[in-house]
Design a binder for these strands. Structure first.
Lengths: 115, 115
DNA sequence: CTTTATACATAGATAATCAATGTATAATAA
DNA sequence: TTATTATACATTGATTATCTATGTATAAAG
């Protein structure tokens, strides 16, 4: 689909926080979930995700913890904080507000402009 | 409302192109329209708008033309091109696709997670 | 020992907002 | 004339973000 950088940027925070609201998760699986959720439209590279996770952690919206999986591979599990849950609501409000502005504009333009 | 930079960035292109689809317009008035459309939530500074307009022109999505207004002040009117109209559709598709991904995620999280 | 999948991390190029600043015209007020 | 406010366009510089490329490491399959 080739989404623009800016749209990816605008969605990364609510997307990741939203996934973590379902339970703690680690980077590699978050990428798979994003792909699944979007029906294959969004394919994040790992080099994209980790800097975002580190930023969210720095902002106090998530915490991280190293854990061993069944396989013996080490995984860094991220969990959402209370601050992170509040941020989800804020992100959701902002997104919906912008969505309504765009919808209003699109509805204006879909009407024939004579009358 | 204090929208994030990234959300402003993601909306700037569809917002401006959408406004210009209603007819040619100039920078100062586009800012007023954005404010009106958003119910006062979005207040763009002129230093934000003009670089975006220049970028859109460089991309061939809009054209510009100097005109005198009734007052005698000179205004640069921007008009959307055919390429610009096509870009609107693309922007709209991308926005809606992302919107549906987020909505799916939010609907998952609004359900109680025991069952 | 090679390849593939999993798993995390950083560096550097590129691109974008946005506050601050500058130029200029017209109207209003002293 | 001078000052202020609203209109109108433009650029600079600080900051912030993606995202490709690259690196490290473990485990399984062959």
């Amino acid at each position: 689909m080739d989404f623009s950088k800016s749209l990816i940027a605008a969605s990364s925070k609510p997307l990741i926080l939203g996934i973590l609201q379902q339970g703690p998760n680690y980077g590699y699986d978050i990428i798979q979930q994003i792909k699944t959720l979007s029906g294959g439209q969004l394919e994040w590279a790992d080099g994209m995700l980790y800097p975002v996770l580190h930023r969210l952690e720095k902002e106090g919206l998530v915490t991280s913890q190293w854990n061993q999986s069944d396989n013996g591979r080490h995984r860094k599990y991220y969990a959402i904080t209370e601050l992170g849950k509040a941020a989800i609501h804020q992100e959701q409000e902002h997104w919906l507000a912008m969505h309504h502005v765009l919808q209003k504009l699109w509805s204006l333009n879909s009407k024939t402009s004579h009358g």
